[in-house]
Amino acid sequence: MIRFNLNGQSVSIDADPDMPLLWALREDLELTGTKFGCGAALCGACTVHLDGKAIRSCSTPLSLVEGKHVTTIEAVSAERVGAAVQAAWVAHDVPQCGYCQSGQIMSAVALLAQKPKPTDADIDSAMSGNICRCGTYNQIRAAIKDAATTLSGGAR
């Protein structure tokens, strides 16, 4: 039995401790907002927060999650940074197919939580693990800067 806190609620699941968190979320807990893209920590589609840090859930075994806090896209708007990022994503109409966007948003929220005023280089290094095959990178960058402005109290 592995217990952890998921989006503010404690959950326990009976699964192979080697199984990646991604599949526990998607299949056992039926939270499908977190996506599968590569299964090898190469694309970022599966990004969630583990104790506030962005991690690739496809390559994080359940055993490492025991007793920790996991936040997924479904709950990210519950706190201030997440809400601002999501609003900026909507304002910039970022998504195309949308499949990568849960992961993009989770990476962006983790970045802004750590660096409220990221430079372009900060954005490059925090976001280059997240692939978007539809090519929305420039809109993602603009939305991150916009959210940073909102969060620092400036007008959008």
């Binding site: 997924t72 909507v90 970022v94 998504p95």
Partner: peptide, 15 residues
């Protein structure tokens, strides 16, 4: 289709 694609509720085949 933007709002659903920013909050995890958009459903793809895998979902």
């Amino acid at each position: 289709d933007t709002p659903a694609k920013t909050n995890g509720s958009a459903k793809f085949g895998l979902d």
